[in-house]
Every structure is written in C-alpha cells, then in structure tokens.
C-alpha cells in the first residue's frame, strides 16, 4: 500500500478548550483513493481537515498529541512546500478568496504565481481549470461580485489548479443546486482519475455513495467507523450515531424488513434498481 498520509494516535484540542475536537485518531490514507467524511455537525469533520493540512495546530494553535505524517515525514517538518502537496478548500468560500486580486482569472492564477510557475504555463493551466469548473464566463468578474455557488466553484478551481497530490475539501456544495453539486463531484472524479488522493467532507450522502471509495464516520471527535463505502453506508446502526445513510440503503433495509429477499443492502441508485428487480423476480418464482 502506498500511504500518502498517516495519523498515529492523534488527539487535538483548540486553545482554551478542555474537550478534544479530535480524539485518538488512527488513520492511513492510501494514495489515489477518495475518502468521504461524514457525521453530524460538531463531530470533528472540519477539525480533521485542519489537522490533515497542519493548520491545527500551526495556525489555530492549541494542543496536539500523536503524530501526523505526510509521506512518512512529520507534517511539522515541512515548510512552504506542504502547500504544493496538499490543497485545501475551505467550507466557507469567503475564507478562500485572497482579497488581493481584481478578477476571477487572477484569483485562480494567484497560487501558481506564488509558486513561481512561468507565465505561459500559468495561463494554460488556469484556462484548463476554469473550463473544467465551468467558471470561464466569470473570468473578468471581481471575486466579490459572485454568488455563494459561483464563489464555491472559484475556490475549488483556485486549489485544483495547483495540482496537489492530496486534496482536502470541506463541504464544497452547501450553496449549490443539484446540477452544480453533481458538477463538483464530476470535477473531483476527474482529480481521482489523475491519481490524486481526496478527502471530502459532505452531507450529501447519496453522492458520497456514488463517488467515494472509502467512508470515515465521525462522532464527538472520534472516528467511529471507517472502511469500504458499501460496508459502511449499509450499516443501519450508524443512523443512531447521527450519520446519514443513502436513501436507497434505507429503502433496501425497509424492504428486507417487509420480507423482500434483497441479496444485499444497496448504497447507490443503480445497485438499488438491480437488487430490487432481482428480488421481485425471485419472489415470483
């Protein structure tokens, strides 16, 4: 296994708090995999993102125990080059926008400029990414004239243009309509095809079920479950822990309870159609 990041018994508390926001976390992230992070609000999902990027404790201060390793090296030993390795998309897009650039094009180019990328290459990469995130038409607008949904896409573009190995994305679709949400997942899928590792916090569980490889479930700062999405998202006991499960999984479970012989609890729409159709056929026999 090619492990890009590892947390060894990590406990983290924000300054002036007694209760840790992340408790005794042991986690290995495998390169090229897409991890969906779920759990109720206040369960530690956003703090996890901050720990994986090193912002907790380097920026937020507070107390950390245990070890966070990036490609085997302690995260605290990296300097500026960490920004090239790990991309971070904030929950609130207003936090992401630099505030020093006049247009969306310049905003998306800002990170590459800081990395000293040649001008011609910057232009090519920025145009590619703006096309992919469907914000080309906003190129000349001020970042502050955008709607919440547009700003979320600009924030995402400004990070993926850097082509980091690991992308940490915190609720990128909260302001988006269903179409916009699907397009963000499609972009993340493309990043996965480029063998990037992805950590995504998201409440839209049906889309996690569709796209993610593994699911991490948090509650009260602890990771209470982790593993293959199929296994995790069909575990009905997680509903009692404040985690959401896909609509089709709940449907599948209720059908089983009524006596329909489903071979498995589906987690995606396609699986649901297959297993229900099969069970209906089975019942007729």
């Amino acid at each position: 296994m090619d492990i890009i990041m590892e947390c060894k018994n990590v406990t983290y508390s924000y300054p002036l708090t007694k209760k840790p926001a992340i408790k005794e976390l042991n986690l290995k992230l495998e390169r090229g995999k897409f991890y969906g992070v779920i759990g109720e609000n206040g369960s530690g999902k956003t703090t996890l993102c901050a720990v994986l990027r090193g912002f907790a404790p380097s920026f937020y201060k507070g107390e950390i125990e245990g070890e966070v390793l990036v490609e085997g090296k302690k995260i605290g030993e990296y300097g500026g080059e960490l920004a090239k390795k790990i991309g971070f998309v904030f929950q609130n897009p207003f936090t992401q926008i630099s505030g020093v650039k006049d247009t969306v094009f310049e905003e998306v180019a800002y990170g590459l400029e800081n990395f000293g990328v040649p001008a011609g290459e910057i232009e090519r990469r920025v145009i590619d990414v703006m096309r992919m995130t469907d914000i080309e038409h906003l190129a000349e607008k001020s970042p502050f004239e955008l709607s919440g949904g547009q700003m979320q896409r600009v924030a995402l573009a400004s990070v993926i243009v850097l082509e980091p190995d690991l992308l940490i994305i915190d609720e990128p679709t909260s302001q988006l309509d269903p179409e916009g949400t699907e397009s963000v997942f499609a972009i993340i899928q493309k990043m996965k095809e480029k063998h990037k590792t992805i950590v995504l916090v998201e409440h839209k569980i049906d889309l996690i079920a569709e796209y993610a490889d593994e699911v991490l479930v948090f509650k009260d700062g602890a990771m209470i479950a982790s593993g293959d999405k199929k296994e995790i998202l069909s575990d009905m006991s997680l509903l009692e822990q404040g985690a959401a499960l896909p609509q089709v999984a709940i449907l599948g479970r209720k059908l089983q309870e009524k006596g329909l012989p489903l071979s498995t609890i589906p987690v995606t729409e396609k699986q649901a159609v297959e297993v229900i159709a099969e069970a209906l056929k089975e019942r007729k026999r």
């Binding site: 269903p178 179409e179 609509q247 089709v248 729409e269 649901a272 159609v273 229900i276 159709a277 209906l280």
Partner: peptide, 14 residues
C-alpha cells in the same frame, strides 16, 4: 435542471 428524489428515480427505473 432539477432531479427527482432518489427513491423516485429507483421507482422510475423499476
């Protein structure tokens, strides 16, 4: 550019 709820989509397919 809206979608049906998930269970509606499953019912439609079935």
């Amino acid at each position: 550019m809206l979608k049906q709820p998930y269970v509606s989509r499953v019912c439609k397919e079935l």
